[in-house]
Simulated assay, not measured.
Amino acid sequence: MSPPPAHPPALPLIEGMLARRTTNGPFRPDPVSREHQHLLMRVAQAAPSHFNSQPWRFVLVENPQTIAEIARISGESMTELIEAGVFFERYRRYFRFSEAEMEERRDGIHIDHLPGPLRPFTRQVFSDAGLKLMRQLGVPKKLGEDNRKLVAGSPLLLAALLDKSEYRPGELSGFYSVFGLGAAMENIWNAVGALGMGIQFVSTPMEIPRQWRAIQTLLNVPGDLELMAVYRLGYLPAGEKRPSIDWSSRHRKRLSQFVARERWGEPEEE
């Protein structure tokens, strides 16, 4: 029997997974077809779960008024987080400011797109002095408005929930449930590209408890379910318009940085 080729041809599924990305820009206004929505739910349904418990629940949101309200909450949350400096304080350690830094670390996000007045101060933008300058230039409100527009212009929102009879934090069932939902969402994330779609996590309301509660109320989340995340989805436009502050994050760690052979301390080489 001949040995397998050194570099076997990549399968379409694997190629799609390696090409996966998050959509930071706007979507086309076209509604997401019901066929595609159900296909995404079926790929989520195919994910593994502990004892086939399938603890995930989803809400598909197309109503323009509901989307507009979630967009308002998201934009207000972004403005509040930036204005108070909370966002940068929490996540500063992930920011990179040059290709060289990204190449060395191979993780985090490269802040490579800033409003004109801030570009000369790229590295200082996320310092205390930089935050003061951003407030003076009205950047928090601009970022909040950009965020609101992105969410408001999304034809479909997807709320991901967990059944509390399975999701019990502090117990193994809590881990199994989060693991299962993560697998379901990863299936969705890997499938959208094949449909000409994109997806992005609507994260800012989660940072502020009262705003997250407002979304739970809006979606009529009952007491036996836990709202875990909200995503925006839509079809990708031909040209991509970048937000006011944007980043790239295509670098990935080398095998030797995250894989060991037999025991930790013996890094796997490429």
Rank of each mutant, 00 (worst) to 15 (best):
L81Q: 14
M102A: 13
I82K: 04
E89S: 12
V86G: 08
V86E: 15
L114G: 07
Y94L: 12
V86S: 15
L114Y: 02
E101C: 07
F88E: 15
R96C: 07
F97I: 02
I111F: 02
H113P: 03
V86F: 10
A84S: 15
E89H: 09
R93N: 12
Y91W: 11
R106T: 05
G108Q: 02
L81S: 14
F95M: 08
E99L: 13
S98E: 02
E99Q: 13
G108S: 01
F97Q: 02
T79A: 15
A100F: 00
F88A: 15
G108Y: 01
D112E: 08
R105K: 08
A100M: 04
E76C: 04
A100S: 08
V86P: 04
R96F: 01
R96N: 07
A100Y: 00
I109A: 09
H110E: 08
T79R: 15
D107I: 04
I111N: 03
S98P: 00
L81G: 06
R93I: 06
G108V: 01
R92H: 13
G85V: 01
G85Q: 04
Y91F: 15
E89Y: 05
D112F: 03
E104F: 11
S77G: 06
E76W: 01
R92F: 07
I111Y: 01
E103Q: 15
F87M: 14
H110R: 09
G108P: 00
Y94F: 13
M102D: 07
E104M: 11
R106C: 05
A100I: 00
R105L: 10
E80G: 10
R93E: 13
A84D: 11
S98A: 01
E76P: 04
E101K: 02
I111V: 12
E80I: 08
G85P: 02
E104Q: 15
L114H: 02
S98C: 00
E103P: 04
E103T: 13
V86D: 15
H113S: 11
A84C: 06
E99M: 10
M102K: 01
R96W: 00
L114Q: 04
R96A: 02
H113I: 04
E83I: 03
H113A: 10
G85T: 03
I111P: 04
V86C: 11
D112C: 09
S77D: 05
E104L: 14
I109G: 05
R90F: 04
E83R: 13
E101D: 08
S77E: 07
E83W: 08
V86N: 12
L81D: 07
E83P: 02
E104H: 12
S98V: 00
A84G: 14
E80L: 14
E76R: 09
E103W: 05
E99P: 01
R93G: 10
E104P: 02
G108D: 04
Y91H: 12
E83N: 06
R90H: 05
F97D: 00
H113Y: 09
F97Y: 09
R96Y: 01
R105H: 08
R105A: 13
I109W: 06
R106L: 10
G85Y: 00
E83C: 05
E83K: 09
R90I: 06
E104G: 09
F97A: 06
E103N: 15
E83T: 13
E80P: 07
E89F: 00
H113T: 08
S77F: 03
L114V: 03
D107N: 10
